[in-house]
Amino acid sequence: MTEYILAKYNYWIYVVLMMIGLYAMMGKRNLVKKLIGMNIFQTSIILLFVSTGVKKGGATVPILMHAGHEHGAQLIQVSDYLNPLPHVLMLTAIVVSIATTGVALATLILIYKRYHTLEEDEILAIRRESRAYKTPRILNPTD
């Protein structure tokens, strides 16, 4: 049992992080808080990916030590180096997440300019009011 926990506890903590982030995205009213949650959510996924590349038992960072030597290539042991692929993917994912955050913040500023608040329920109230004002229903007896 202990072994099982030791083998899995990492994953569970990632899942907890994801849940925190997801909850903030869905349940929080403040838009900045939603974005913070989004960041947490995305980093936890990145963490999950990165951890798939981990190898126990002496593997080191995926930078070859004997590069340049002609015979160095033969000496490369797969178990000596961490799996590089998740790292590659996650470099992209980090950039994607920051890009999303950037666009989201830009819309956030637009929203603030328009409504002078960042609380979702207040904005919704304002919008409902303005929509009711902007589109008067013409009562048409034939409709």
Binding site: L22, M25, M26, L31, K34, M38, F41, Q42, T100, V103, A104, T107, L108, L110, I111, R114, Y115, I123, L124, R127
Partner: peptide, 14 residues
């Protein structure tokens, strides 16, 4: 639009 987009960003990112 900005508010709709923000919701879209949140849900789309999920």
């Amino acid at each position: 639009a900005p508010m709709a987009t923000f919701n879209y960003i949140i849900i789309g990112t999920i």
